[in-house]
């Protein structure tokens, strides 16, 4: 399998230089905390469906101690001289009762949005999902989050259903 704990790939952006896409590691906890501070209020609300102030210990553990079996998570970082600047993450969690279905979430820091990095990450995520026999990726989003719908529509037909006021479940069948 390509998408394991060892996964790592350099991505050369046409205008913004070199990025590193790799599997999330337990040592990324501090990076996640710092990155949340850089995420705008609007982006936090879109990602977490609430204005997130910070991560709990439990959340940091879940988000960074990834098994790459039911839970796959990739990070993308900007290469800056000898170090790396957080850019975003993407992940999916396979459903407990349906191994062919997984919920995904994607976060790109505001200053890196609109550059195609979300598409790049989502492409990888779809490949990782297919590798594991997942046939459908779905996400929970605000009814006003058009960006995620656009992202998903690039990979195929998106179906939506209402979960509750203001919240939709958007699903994509993987070809």
């Amino acid at each position: 399998m390509k998408y394991t704990k060892e996964f790592s790939e350099i991505f050369n952006h046409p205008s913004r230089g070199e990025f590193l896409c790799r599997a999330i590691r337990p040592s990324d906890k501090e990076g996640l905390v710092m990155a949340l501070k850089d995420l705008s209020i609007e982006s936090r609300k879109k990602r977490f469906l609430t204005l997130k102030k910070g991560f709990t210990e439990k959340e940091l553990k879940i988000f960074t101690e990834v098994d790459f079996v039911r839970h796959v998570a990739l990070a993308i970082l900007k290469v800056v001289d000898q170090s790396f600047e957080p850019v975003g993450t993407v992940r999916f969690f396979v459903d407990e009762d349906n191994l062919e279905r997984a919920e995904f979430a994607i976060t790109i820091l505001d200053k890196f949005q609109g550059l195609g990095i979300g598409n790049y990450l989502f492409d990888h995520l779809c490949e990782a999902a297919k590798e594991r026999g997942i046939k459908e990726l779905y996400g929970t989003a605000s009814t006003e989050n058009n960006k995620i719908v656009k992202l998903m529509k690039k990979k195929g037909e998106v179906k939506s259903k209402v979960i509750t006021h203001g919240i939709l479940e958007l699903s994509l069948k993987l070809g």
Partner: peptide, 12 residues
């Protein structure tokens, strides 16, 4: 707050 696996609040 009740949340799903990817950390989103479950308002329902």
């Amino acid at each position: 707050l009740p949340k799903n696996n990817v950390g989103k609040v479950l308002r329902r």
